[in-house]
Protein backbone atom coordinates (compact mmCIF):
# COMPACT_ATOMS: atom_id res chain seq x y z
CA UNK A 1 0.00 0.00 0.00
CA UNK A 2 2.96 2.31 0.67
CA UNK A 3 4.20 1.59 -2.85
CA UNK A 4 0.78 2.47 -4.22
CA UNK A 5 0.20 5.76 -2.41
CA UNK A 6 2.67 8.38 -1.15
CA UNK A 7 0.54 9.09 1.95
CA UNK A 8 0.99 5.55 3.23
CA UNK A 9 3.87 4.37 5.39
CA UNK A 10 4.20 0.68 6.25
CA UNK A 11 6.37 -0.80 8.99
CA UNK A 12 6.96 -4.40 9.91
CA UNK A 13 7.71 -4.55 13.64
CA UNK A 14 9.37 -7.52 15.33
CA UNK A 15 7.08 -7.73 18.36
CA UNK A 16 9.42 -9.51 20.77
CA UNK A 17 12.26 -7.02 20.17
CA UNK A 18 10.10 -3.98 20.81
CA UNK A 19 8.12 -4.89 23.87
CA UNK A 20 7.35 -1.25 24.65
CA UNK A 21 5.53 -0.87 21.32
CA UNK A 22 3.90 -4.28 21.69
CA UNK A 23 2.60 -3.38 25.14
CA UNK A 24 1.44 0.03 24.00
CA UNK A 25 -0.71 -1.57 21.29
CA UNK A 26 -1.63 -4.61 23.39
CA UNK A 27 -0.13 -7.10 20.95
CA UNK A 28 -0.94 -10.53 22.37
CA UNK A 29 -0.98 -12.41 19.08
CA UNK A 30 0.57 -11.92 15.66
CA UNK A 31 0.14 -10.72 13.06
CA UNK A 32 -1.53 -7.68 14.53
CA UNK A 33 -1.80 -4.49 12.50
CA UNK A 34 -2.22 -1.02 13.95
CA UNK A 35 -3.30 1.84 11.69
CA UNK A 36 -2.54 5.41 12.79
CA UNK A 37 -2.12 4.13 16.32
CA UNK A 38 -5.81 3.32 16.67
CA UNK A 39 -7.40 0.88 14.21
CA UNK A 40 -6.58 -2.73 15.15
CA UNK A 41 -6.57 -5.60 12.66
CA UNK A 42 -6.06 -9.11 14.00
CA UNK A 43 -4.61 -11.92 11.91
CA UNK A 44 -3.74 -12.17 8.24
CA UNK A 45 -6.56 -11.16 5.91
CA UNK A 46 -7.04 -11.56 2.16
CA UNK A 47 -5.66 -8.49 0.37
CA UNK A 48 -8.84 -6.60 -0.33
CA UNK A 49 -10.26 -7.22 3.16
CA UNK A 50 -7.00 -5.98 4.61
CA UNK A 51 -7.10 -2.83 2.47
CA UNK A 52 -10.70 -2.19 3.54
CA UNK A 53 -9.79 -2.69 7.19
CA UNK A 54 -6.83 -0.31 6.97
CA UNK A 55 -9.06 2.29 5.34
CA UNK A 56 -11.79 1.62 7.92
CA UNK A 57 -14.32 0.80 5.20
CA UNK A 58 -17.23 -1.63 5.52
CA UNK A 59 -16.50 -5.17 4.38
CA UNK A 60 -18.92 -5.12 1.48
CA UNK A 61 -19.37 -2.53 -1.18
CA UNK A 62 -21.57 0.30 -0.07
CA UNK A 63 -24.99 0.17 -1.73
CA UNK A 64 -25.08 2.19 -4.93
CA UNK A 65 -26.16 5.74 -4.42
CA UNK A 66 -29.80 6.39 -5.21
Amino acid sequence: MARENALVQASCVEATEFMDLSRKFRVTGVPKTIVNGSIEILGALPEEMFVRSVLNLPENDAPPEA
Binding site: A10, S11, T33, I34
Partner: peptide
Amino acid sequence: VTAPTNIQVFVT
Protein backbone atom coordinates in the same frame (compact mmCIF):
# COMPACT_ATOMS: atom_id res chain seq x y z
CA VAL B 1 -6.45 7.51 1.23
CA THR B 2 -6.69 11.25 1.74
CA ALA B 3 -4.48 11.72 4.81
CA PRO B 4 -1.17 10.28 6.05
CA THR B 5 -1.73 6.63 6.95
CA ASN B 6 0.73 4.80 9.17
CA ILE B 7 0.45 1.01 9.09
CA GLN B 8 2.39 -1.01 11.68
CA VAL B 9 2.32 -4.78 11.33
CA PHE B 10 3.51 -6.64 14.42
CA VAL B 11 5.06 -10.03 13.71
CA THR B 12 7.30 -12.62 15.34
